[in-house]
Amino acid sequence: MTAQTEAGQAPDLLYSEAEEDLRAAVRSLLADRADAPTVIARTESDTPYDPELWKALATGIGAAGLLVPEELGGQGATHREAAVVLEELGRSVAPAPYLTSSVVATETLLALGTPDGPVAALLAELAEGRKVAVLAVPFAAATVAIGSLDGVLGPVADAAAADVLLVPTADGLYAVATDAPGVRVEPLVALDLTRPLATVTLDGASGTRLADADAARRAVDRGLLAGAGLLASEQLGLAEWCLTETVRHTRERHQFNRPVGSFQALKHRMAQLWLEVVSARAAARNAADALATGSPDTPLAVAVAQAYCSKVAVHAAEECVQLHGGIGMTWEHPAHLYLKRAKADATAYGTAGRHRETVAALMELPAP
């Protein structure tokens, strides 16, 4: 049963039994299909996405439809459960379009109002894992980016894995199939190879109009807000893996006949990182709970989570590389994947600085 809070009550930051069961299922799947050697090998190939992994995650576990109501073929769960999935994806940095499709695109469609017609049909396909949709706005966008059905859009995260593009234009929101005439998706060389970017060129393309301009703007804003809020959970999972792996390594690595983790200077660094990760967990869980319960403080909770968690993820990844010594600097070790993901996430859906400005505006404080 999903934990819920009522307006005026303190948010529930604890994990429910159902959420822990979901975590165990996702972690087991990723350990089997997306361990470090597998992810490294895929990022060095031309096919970073594993269709079988996505099928197992989306349909086998049912993660793709967590936010979709049951009457549309989804699980009828909340952002809290989706946050758990993203924590585990952050721990493995698996190349999977979950954040972009199952959260941002899905939330955008749900925000259009009572789903019917093409919106309901697309939501059902996303929930069943039969299609992947991405919002065709720059990955670093924090607000609606107005495009058109004739031009170049991007860089768009996970566009290479998408079947459908949600394109906000001055005329409204359109669903455009990536294999339609006049649509070209061109991969880019991105910092984070586990979440590929691409430019999308629309040349006389046509699509299905899903909403008018005003409804599209509100829906895309909601999708980006949910994306920023749950991105904090991905950053939390990433930071937790970096801390756990670093503690394990410093216990096993010996110098002067002692574990290097017993040296006081390293103890202090890892203790500080542990405190940051614990605080990041509280911020990320608060944002997920606010989204799940429709709290009026959701914009503030999301801004606080992103302003804090992005910094913690980068710090944890940097410490992971440094405290692993020479091996941490090699391509064979996965530490570099976590550092690149953390750096890329730090600019996704708004930088930490921009979110701090949001906090200042919402609290009527002088901007930093």
Rank of each mutant, 00 (worst) to 15 (best):
E20A: 10
L300F: 10
A136V: 00
G76Y: 06
H333V: 01
Q272C: 13
P334A: 00
A282W: 04
A216M: 02
P37E: 13
G74Y: 06
T114F: 10
E88W: 10
G113T: 01
A121R: 00
A284T: 00
V134H: 09
K267V: 15
A159D: 07
V132A: 01
L230R: 09
L339P: 01
V312L: 04
P37C: 11
V321F: 02
V260G: 01
A25E: 11
L149V: 02
V137R: 07
A120P: 00
G147E: 03
F263Q: 04
A162I: 12
A177Y: 07
V132K: 03
P181K: 15
R281K: 12
S92W: 00
G325V: 02
A215S: 15
Y174C: 00
H79V: 06
D46H: 11
A213W: 02
P37A: 11
K343H: 08
L236K: 09
M363G: 04
P97R: 07
G117D: 12
G237H: 05
R222M: 11
D221K: 01
P366N: 08
T351Y: 02
G350Y: 05
T347L: 09
Y15W: 13
R258P: 14
A348R: 13
L166W: 03
V183L: 09
R23N: 02
Y349C: 00
A346D: 08
V134G: 00
V156S: 00
P334W: 03
L112W: 09
G261F: 06
L66S: 03
T330L: 14
A77I: 08
V84I: 03
G113W: 07
D150V: 02
A25W: 04
H268L: 15
L362I: 08
Q322D: 13
G207C: 02
L238I: 08
D150K: 04
P299V: 11
D171P: 03
E20R: 13
D163P: 06
D203Q: 13
A157W: 07
I40T: 10
E240D: 11
A157Q: 08
T2K: 15
V183R: 02
G204T: 11
L202H: 10
T106D: 07
A215N: 11
L122R: 07
A215G: 15
R341E: 10
